[in-house]
Design a protein around this nucleic acid. Structure first.
Length: 417
DNA sequence: TGACGTCAAGATCCG
DNA sequence: CGGATCTTGACGTCA
């Protein structure tokens, strides 16, 4: 059982994907960007290994214009060794990586040109995974596509287009239900017919349940039948509704109570859960810690070191409660811990509590900073208290200080995200 | 023709 | 000048 996250790692330096616009699309630029992106990928993989995250989706942005004729670079050859080194880390750690072309890769389009580009895009994704040397359990997730006024016909077109895809694509391709057009029931029908593993997405299914009823456990059980031995463990997507956005929008963070309720119903050793959530790795660690019974409290102390100044900023009351909660070193009060963190995140910070947190962070620099820096901090906090400066400006300054004085404890903090 | 979603590049504004 | 903030780009479907 693995829990993971998609594409980007938040709050970790040098993990960003860079790209360029069409008008800057030149080989030299590509080489520079790909080099940067492979470094970022490696940093994300390293981070995942350090944090026990063994399920990860690699961003499609790894190679700029990777599936476009604009990029004719032999990037697989040029960066062969880099791919190999990163692939080795993935394989040796037992990490399972996947990819997921976006909503614009449409294999069943009536437009032949669109379908052809979609197939090329799938080839691009396969090439990345092949370069990394990952096995057939390393999947590429795809949606069925559009409806075009005739779903039967659109499904038939998906079928015929699928049949002529390369075997290299077929051994990795898996089909996911979407929130608009193809419900999990419809996806399953096609998946069974074409022998493609089906990925159940709980939120998509809630928004687009299709005709037949059936809950999470029912559909996961049905999808399980489409996963063969060589496909690896069954994989699902899990996300939660963002209540302040439109239906189907992913939440900023995973609400732990809601997750554990779901997990309690569906969990099994041979099921992998890919989280789709805005705060990515942060929620992944939260969920991993929460389902690990009897982990050492050190795991929570590590989490506390990342959350504490953010909690202090929003809710000094929660801050004190968590400190109390973590006093008993023989306990593992993971649920209460994350509930208190969530409570703090829902609390609006006051000017006073914000300044208090800023001063706690400043404490790291009090003795090492220059006079100019001391003055700057004083001025910034005064301005903030008078409403003449934003909290983000003060925090940006504190972050630069943390970088300059290499305060790793602070650099790992969620306070700056 | 614009909304949809996603992210960063690119442009512009501000002190 | 640097940092913060707004706009654009790249993709295909659908109203």
């Amino acid at each position: 059982m693995k829990i993971g996250y998609a594409c980007l790692t938040v709050g970790v330096p040098n993990t960003g994907m860079r790209t360029c616009t069409m008008k800057n699309a030149r080989s030299e630029r590509f080489i520079e960007l790909i080099g940067n992106n492979l470094d970022s990928l490696e940093n994300m993989i390293d981070y995942n290994i350090r944090n026990g995250i063994l399920l990860f989706r690699i961003s499609s942005d790894l190679i700029p214009f990777g599936s476009s004729p604009v990029n004719s670079l032999k990037w697989d050859k040029i960066f062969e060794e880099r791919f190999h080194a990163i692939g080795q880390k993935i394989r040796r750690s037992g990490m399972r990586v996947s990819m997921h072309p976006g909503q614009y890769t449409v294999i069943n389009s009536p437009n032949e040109d669109v379908a052809k580009r979609a197939a090329e895009d799938l080839e691009y994704h396969v090439r990345i995974l092949d370069c990394l040397g990952t096995g057939p359990e390393s999947k590429i997730v795809l949606h069925v596509g559009g409806v075009y006024g005739d779903k039967e016909e659109a499904l038939r077109r998906f079928e015929s287009r699928y049949r002529v895809l390369d075997d290299g694509i077929k051994r990795r391709l898996v089909l996911e239900n979407d929130e608009k057009s193809y419900s999990i029931g419809e996806v399953l029908e096609t998946a069974l017919k074409l022998n493609i593993p089906a990925v159940y997405d709980n939120l998509h299914s809630k928004v687009n349940p299709g005709g037949s009823a059936g809950g999470d456990t029912y559909w996961i059980e049905e999808c399980r039948k489409t996963w063969k031995a060589q496909d690896g463990d069954q994989k699902i997507h899990y996300s939660q509704q963002n209540h302040s956005k439109k239906r189907g929008s992913h939440s900023d963070s995973i609400r732990i109570g809601e997750f554990l309720e779901f997990y309690g119903r569906v969990s099994r050793e041979d099921l992998d859960i890919m989280l789709e959530v805005k705060d990515k790795n942060i929620s992944a660690i939260k969920c991993i810690n929460s389902v690990a019974a009897g982990k050492s409290i050190r795991a929570l102390e590590l989490e506390w070191s990342r959350y504490k100044y953010l909690v202090l900023q929003n809710s000094p009351a929660a801050y004190l409660q968590i400190r109390k909660l973590l006093k008993d070193k023989t306990s593992y009060p993971v649920f209460q811990f994350y509930r208190l963190v969530e409570e703090a995140m829902m609390t609006e910070s006051t000017t006073g509590s914000s300044v208090n947190a800023m001063q706690h962070v400043w404490g790291y620099f009090k003795d090492v900073s220059t006079e100019k820096e001391k003055y700057r901090f004083l001025k910034l906090t005064e301005d903030f208290e008078k409403g003449q400066a934003k909290a983000s400006s003060v925090k940006a300054f504190l972050y630069r200080m943390a970088v300059k004085y290499e305060e790793h404890y602070l650099l790992d903090s969620y306070y700056f995200i």
